[in-house]
Design a protein around this nucleic acid. Structure first.
Length: 468
RNA sequence: GGCCCCGUGGUGUAGCGGUUAGCACGCUGGCCUUUCACGCCGGUAGCGCGAGUUCGAUUCUCGUCGGGGCUACCA
């Protein structure tokens, strides 16, 4: 289906502010966003905060922050469901007047007992004028409520098995299944895209729409996400929240790509899909029906691809932001360095890291005194290691400031290894340890160039005298 | 327990009655190589099970088993 043939979808992402935005929630947000932006429609945000006990401003801010980081924008200001309570109550009044809803003071135990007596049939209450009664919606005793789901097809629920659901608490405030229906209608939502955990709530909402005489939106229930152990995804599964993904050094575009693939696949099975391609090709109708397991290994691989392919300037900005959030000292050191030096350092490390959090430890030695890895020194700075360093020091001293480039350094060191009859590896590892402090670094010749003649030589000199 | 959803290698998926069941990650053998990575080449492994429909089922139907969700005066 081409872009022009898509009908604009007006969707909503409706998180409840009871915790950080989960990977599952992020995927729901992404699918909604792809539906909206890919169809020329709109995505609105509604914070489901009617449960005052469990909602907090801090959590709302955290969720919005996560969405911004993911670069999933929305239309208009976020709507507070709680702030719409007057609208909910007005709708409840209408239903009460029409006899479609009634006061009932049954307790949970009484409802349970009623169901036991009536062989599992949906609870039907008795109207009361007593104080402290909740308001229930009258559900038909016969017929079937059909959810016409874009992903699952027609899902049928027998009305007689559905309870007369409570739509308002004794204090008059509306409950979730009622508020959602009223809000989706009044916010003119055309398509509800949400997790499968809401599938069995849908007939209840459909009943509310019917009572209100309003045409319901279309529904698409996407499968849930599970952890590596097959259980429902939770904080126990590592980087389960967007915040953790961010801290781990993933790129938002990579996360979008990965999440899009978790439950959806293009007909040609492409793996690397830019957001533009996602926008063009994503179709809610092609989302799968079975739950998926979050696999960080694949996310890492995808992220590595994006890391390697990103522009140096963007790479630099991303790293700077990442350091700023996790390692202020490193961020300050990095920011204080010469711009050209920063770029040079990033250029030689770019294809080695899969996540941002791996970058700094690979290039920190280019921005200050290296952290000495004693095990590494002990391993390579043996007798001939020291000799190697000494030879290198004199060989490289011969190169002038302007000749201290990878292109000039490499032949010098290769010739040195040959002359001294030592394997290149046995010459280079001691040098690597001497200048970087450890056994792992970007390419040595490039590293020396970026470090510069003066510092390189002084570290070699220091290594020669401080070897264990 | 009741209602509902789901079931292709370890993971994510393609498939839409006839395919040597494709792709990607992972794992693994090798190559490359100054370390670690990257990259390249090769390999490993799958239609949960049982009936039925059909000339023929991974594809359709039923059952079964397994996994999951909901079952609040939470969202």
């Amino acid at each position: 289906m081409s872009e022009l043939e898509k009908k604009p979808m007006r969707v909503r992402f409706a998180p409840s502010p009871t915790g950080a935005l989960h990977i599952g929630g992020a995927r729901t947000a992404l699918y909604n966003w792809l539906c909206a932006r890919g169809s020329g429609g709109a995505m609105v945000l509604r914070i489901e905060d009617t449960d005052r006990e469990r909602s907090s401003e801090a959590t709302i801010a955290q969720i919005l922050d996560a969405l911004r980081w993911l670069e999933l924008d929305w239309d208009g200001d976020p709507v507070s469901q709680f702030a719409r309570r007057d609208r909910h109550q007005a709708a409840i009044e209408r239903l009460l007047e029409q006899g479609k809803a009634y006061y009932d003071s049954a307790t949970a135990e009484q409802v349970k007992a009623w169901r036991a007596v009536n062989r599992g049939a949906g609870y039907r209450g008795r109207e009361t004028t007593a104080d402290g009664a909740a308001i229930r919606l009258r559900v038909p005793d016969s017929g079937t409520t059909v959810v016409d789901d874009r992903i699952r097809g027609e899902v049928r629920f027998e009305n007689r098995l559905l309870d007369d659901l409570v739509i308002a608490r004794a204090d008059g405030t509306a409950l979730y299944n009622f508020a959602v229906a009223v809000d989706d209608a009044e916010m003119e939502v055309s398509d509800v895209v949400r997790g499968e955990d809401h599938l069995s709530n849908t007939p209840k909402q459909l009943l509310v729409f019917a009572a209100l005489g309003i045409e319901p939106p279309r529904y698409a229930h996407i499968p849930l996400l599970h952890g590596p152990d097959g259980k429902k995804l939770s904080k126990r599964h590592g980087a389960a929240s967007v915040q953790e993904l961010r801290r781990s050094g993933y790129l938002p575009e990579a996360v979008r790509n990965y999440l899009a693939l978790l439950g959806w696949g293009a007909d040609d099975d492409e793996t690397l899909l830019s957001t533009d391609e996602l926008l063009r090709r994503f179709s809610i109708d092609r989302v799968g029906r079975s739950s998926a397991i979050f696999d960080e290994k694949k996310l890492r691989w995808i992220n590595g691809r994006y890391m390697r392919e990103s522009e140096l300037a963007a790479y630099e900005a991303r790293l700077a932001a990442h350091l700023e959030e996790g390692d202020r000292a490193a961020a300050a050191t990095f920011a204080a360095a010469d711009p050209a030096h920063r770029r040079a350092a990033l250029a030689i490390v770019q294809d080695k890291a899969q996540v941002l959090s791996e970058v700094w430890k690979l290039i920190a030695f280019l921005f200050g005194e290296p952290v000495r890895d004693d095990a590494a020194w002990k391993k390579v700075m043996v007798a001939d290691g020291e000799v190697a360093v000494a030879h290198t020091l004199s060989a490289l001293s011969a190169l002038g400031e302007s000749d201290f480039t990878a292109a000039r350094i490499e032949p010098v060191l290769r010739a040195l290894a040959e002359r001294e009859q030592i394997k290149l590896k046995n010459l280079l590892q001691p040098i690597r340890v001497a200048v970087s402090g450890g056994l792992v670094s970007p390419g040595l010749f490039e590293s020396l160039e970026v470090l510069g003649r003066e510092i390189s030589l002084s570290r070699l000199d220091a290594a020669r005298s401080s070897a264990p």
